[in-house]
């Protein structure tokens, strides 16, 4: 447990020392949400809203994870090879990304509320956000590590991650329209179960496969 806390502290210190990247992500969410809300104007339904919301959140998560992985230079990685086990490193990254992604998702959602969209069942929606951040952060931790090491940058990251995230995005977009529209739980319980299973699957995939990426 202690190495994970140490690694989490390191992530936080790196992030705090380089405040630019945090504010860059924040402004990305603010600006894109605001632009999108201006462009679609009034008279859209929740289906359109959830498509836009999740696409913006997906690209925000790409930015967060890829920037984080690119910062890990070769020297720092070599130093960490000697100190940590791969599953500790992965768990720390996973936790850090899920915290970061959840915070930005909540901020993005808050902006929409400020802009005056009426939502229902907000508490349950936060559960969706949380489950989604588990899927996103475990898969994107793998993919960003991979594309940073392969030197492909954002293009490779998008090519690799977009198709992989689609099962999750399909479920989450459908689920958020149901939840925020105030349907009864029985209507969408199967989507919830599927999303929970998907988050378990992606976390196991990350834990099993990361050790193979870890060492060259």
């Amino acid at each position: 447990m202690k190495p994970i806390i140490t690694l989490l502290r390191k992530e936080m210190l790196v992030e705090l020392r380089n405040k630019g990247s945090f504010y860059a992500n924040l402004i990305f969410v603010l600006a894109s949400t605001y632009i999108v809300s201006l462009l679609i104007g009034d008279g859209y339904n929740l289906k359109v809203w959830s498509a836009i919301f999740w696409v913006v959140m997906m690209f925000t998560s790409f930015n967060i994870t890829l920037n984080n992985s690119l910062k890990e230079g070769r020297g720092r990685l070599l130093y960490q090879y000697t100190l940590f086990k791969p599953w500790q490193y992965f768990t720390a990254k996973f936790l850090w990304f899920s915290i970061f992604i959840t915070v930005l998702n909540v901020i993005g959602f808050g902006i929409w509320m400020v802009l005056g969209v009426a939502f229902q069942n907000i508490g349950l929606f936060f559960c969706v956000l949380l489950l989604n951040s588990i899927v996103f952060s475990s898969l994107l931790a793998l993919m960003s590590f991979l594309s940073a090491k392969a030197g492909g940058g954002f293009a490779l990251m998008s090519i690799l991650s977009l198709p992989i995230l689609i099962p999750d995005l399909l479920l989450v977009a459908k689920l958020s329209t149901f939840v925020l529209d105030g349907f009864a739980y029985a209507v969408y319980s199967k989507y919830f179960i599927a999303l929970g299973m998907l988050s378990v699957i992606s976390l196991t995939l990350g834990l099993v496969l990361f050790p193979y990426l870890w060492r060259e």
């Binding site: 392969a150 995939l205 496969l209 990426l213």
Partner: peptide
């Protein structure tokens, strides 16, 4: 090859 093998399992 290693990256591709990892990716193919996820895919």
């Amino acid at each position: 090859a290693k990256f591709a093998a990892v990716y193919s399992i996820i895919a």
